[in-house]
Amino acid sequence: MLPPVDSTMRANTIELVCPAGSLPALKAAVGNGADSVYIGFRDGTNARNFPGLNFDDQEARAAVDYAHKAGKRVFLAINTYPRPRQWDEWCRAVDRAAALGVDALILADPGLMHYAATHHPELRLHLSVQGSATNHEAIAFYARQFAIRRVVLPRVLSLSQVQQVIDKTEVPVEVFGFGSLCIMVEGRCALSSYVTGKSPNAAGVCSPAEAVRWEESNNIRRTRLNGVLIDQFAPLEQAGYPTICKGRYEVNENVFYALEEPTSLNVLDILPELVRTGVAALKVEGRQRSPAYVAQVTRVLREALDSCLADPDNYLPKSHWMAELDKVAEGSCHTLGAYHRPWQ
């Protein structure tokens, strides 16, 4: 089926937005074809608050300088929800980001958006995926209140629903193209805090490392989160990190992945369709991953996007792209997730 002309017109450029948890990762993203790189400060102000990851002010300055010299943009995520005692620190993070001259701030908390819009009106604001905006009316709220310039859609919409959103909003839309798959509406998931006390919303972390235990006895490996058995593995099974939504549980006397298998999102199979919806940007998940991951994924997605944009009608994902991405994917396999209706 041929797309409507205006969708094809809109598809001439799509920004590739890649993650960086360190300066080497940022260089890997820039060197392999990212248009923009997103980073976070080394604290709980962002949703990938892991030990040894992210940027202090000096590193962030170096990151912005490096990317700008290469003609690329840097976005900074301050996308957790500050509680009252954290409020001042989160506001200072916004001030620091403004001083660094980042190209956009990725925010989720409405109160913090208000602070940023009031104190730094020149700053470009993106609504984080943690902002849970899954429809054009919710997006309109943030556009009206804070003049957001982009929205990152939660990974819960089908392809046709993405199209509906884009048709009804003036705000450019960014969607996820590759990476670990949150199957819950981001910003609305308290599973991690239910078990550990720490959640992506409040602490910037899902399944915090200090709550994780790996056990082995009688050749069975078990993964626990704050004592709760998330999964157990036979000798030849690949054991995954104990994320609650990727565990095996008992429901109606069956043991299975009751929520989701350990798998990664990968949209290469539907790239032309996604491009025709008129998305402005394609995002790669994984600020917690290595520079090698960032390099590999960025390179493949750049090649795929270029190929698709040049000739969407004859685009076919190359098998070596898929193989390379599966190598770095969670569970070594991939899914279209909610984009593909039967997944739901």
């Binding site: 500050p82 109160g111 208000h114 905006a133 899954t134 429809n135 009316e137 309109a140």
Partner: peptide, 28 residues
């Protein structure tokens, strides 16, 4: 959902339910 907040803003008084992320005084 913020969709409902958007529709109700300036139109009718409403309850911000438990699924609206109210974490601080500025949001409230």
């Amino acid at each position: 959902d913020m969709a409902a907040v958007n529709m109700l803003t300036g139109a009718a008084p409403f309850v911000a339910g438990p699924h609206i992320n109210t974490y601080n005084a500025a949001t409230l």
